[in-house]
Simulated assay, not measured.
Amino acid sequence: MNVLICDDSGFARKQLARALPADWNIKLHQAADGLEGVEQILMGNGDLIFLDLTMPEMDGYGVLETLQREGLRNKVIVVSGDIQPEAYQRVMALGALDFIKKPAAPETLRELLRRHGLWQQSAPAPLPVAVQGSDQHPVQSAIQFTPELRDVYQELANVAMGQAADLLARLLGAFVLLPIPNVNVLEVSELHMALSAAAESDTLSAVCQGFIGAGIAGEALILFHDASFQDLARLMNHQGPLDHGVELELLMDTANVLIGAFLRGYANQLDTPFSQGHPVVLGQHRSIQDLIQTNQSRWRRTLAIEINYRIQGHAVQCDLLLLFTEDSIATMNHKIMHML
């Protein structure tokens, strides 16, 4: 059987390949985005496809729509960090065989494959899994921030982002549109530029919350676009005028959901629990330049993870930035080396 893993993260592809049954007699192929995945499928390399949803070029929904449109009957198992109920409903309606969340545990995969008649456990004589592609690079120094490490950080953020979106989607009864997380090590001037680029509206409201745990520390920053308050109030079934106090309550509720869920998901993957400080309102209805000017002493050289959350069909948009201290990078890199 030709099995295709289609995911933009090299780390996620390797992680999934390692989780597959060792005695499964397959030929394994890889694709780094949806377009490449469709090409591999058309070449006959995707009898069974493990498909991510959030990818550049063409996302997982686009791949499923292409298969459906072309009348191709390849078996597809979606493996995604986006675990919203609507995401599950959409992929199943598009013909997916099943849906599991990232990261996929070996026992979960074995049970799923057994249930669908795709694999049966044999006598313990492990066969090597042939991995096609050029993802197997030597491990780099733990103190560097290499492209391979950036890929791992992006995948960790992808999983945590999906968990936070699922919680927000259930709270609002809506579908949260998810981007590909942006991960970079930034100097303070570059961070200010990134913050400015994240804000497209004239005014913002911002909440900051510190966190710390086992050599890792940083701040989570929510930039909430002021034009979002009206739709957010409707989604939360707020009755009455939208005054300053109500906006503050909506802001804090959204920040608590997104920051808390993201940090839990991120910490669980690193096996490092975080203690969170009290959330602090940095400002309401202010320009991004004012927020940066007032709080610039807080942010120095940092590992920054940026995620833009939007609600489908509503004018609700906010940016979540995770700003890890420079000292935290070496600690996290060391943990990641064990994962690699």
Rank of each mutant, 00 (worst) to 15 (best):
2 N>R: 14
4 L>C: 07
6 C>Y: 00
8 D>R: 02
9 S>K: 09
9 S>Y: 08
10 G>V: 00
11 F>D: 01
14 K>T: 05
16 L>F: 06
17 A>H: 04
18 R>L: 13
24 W>M: 06
29 H>Q: 11
38 V>H: 00
40 Q>Y: 00
40 Q>H: 10
42 L>M: 13
43 M>V: 04
43 M>H: 14
44 G>K: 05
45 N>H: 15
48 L>C: 06
53 L>S: 06
54 T>R: 11
59 D>L: 05
66 T>W: 14
68 Q>K: 15
70 E>R: 14
72 L>K: 12
75 K>Y: 01
76 V>T: 07
78 V>W: 00
80 S>G: 07
84 Q>G: 03
84 Q>Y: 08
85 P>H: 11
85 P>W: 09
86 E>K: 13
86 E>H: 07
88 Y>T: 10
89 Q>F: 05
91 V>I: 09
97 L>Q: 10
110 R>L: 11
112 L>E: 08
115 R>C: 07
115 R>S: 14
116 H>M: 04
119 W>L: 01
121 Q>K: 15
123 A>F: 08
125 A>I: 10
127 L>H: 09
127 L>Y: 02
128 P>V: 12
129 V>A: 15
129 V>M: 15
130 A>M: 11
132 Q>K: 14
136 Q>T: 11
140 Q>Y: 11
140 Q>D: 15
141 S>P: 00
143 I>L: 12
145 F>K: 02
147 P>T: 11
147 P>F: 10
149 L>V: 12
150 R>N: 14
152 V>L: 11
155 E>A: 05
156 L>T: 01
161 M>K: 15
171 L>C: 10
172 L>W: 04
172 L>G: 02
173 G>L: 05
174 A>N: 05
177 L>R: 12
178 L>V: 05
178 L>D: 08
180 I>A: 08
180 I>E: 12
183 V>C: 04
190 E>N: 08
190 E>R: 09
190 E>K: 11
195 L>G: 13
197 A>E: 15
198 A>I: 03
201 S>P: 00
203 T>C: 09
206 A>D: 03
207 V>C: 06
209 Q>C: 06
209 Q>E: 09
210 G>T: 11
214 A>I: 03
216 I>G: 01
223 L>F: 13
229 F>E: 03
229 F>N: 03
231 D>A: 14
231 D>E: 13
232 L>M: 11
232 L>C: 08
237 N>G: 02
238 H>L: 10
245 G>S: 14
248 L>T: 13
249 E>F: 06
254 T>D: 03
255 A>H: 04
259 I>W: 02
261 A>E: 14
263 L>N: 07
263 L>W: 02
264 R>E: 15
265 G>L: 04
266 Y>F: 15
266 Y>E: 02
267 A>F: 00
268 N>T: 13
271 D>F: 03
274 F>Q: 01
275 S>Y: 08
277 G>V: 02
280 V>D: 10
282 L>H: 07
283 G>V: 05
285 H>G: 11
287 S>A: 10
292 I>N: 05
294 T>L: 15
294 T>N: 13
298 R>K: 13
302 T>Y: 00
302 T>I: 06
306 E>A: 12
307 I>Q: 08
311 I>R: 02
311 I>D: 01
313 G>R: 12
315 A>H: 13
316 V>S: 06
320 L>S: 06
321 L>A: 12
323 L>E: 04
324 F>A: 09
326 E>A: 14
329 I>Q: 10
331 T>C: 07
332 M>Q: 08
334 H>S: 14
336 I>W: 00
338 H>L: 12
340 L>M: 12
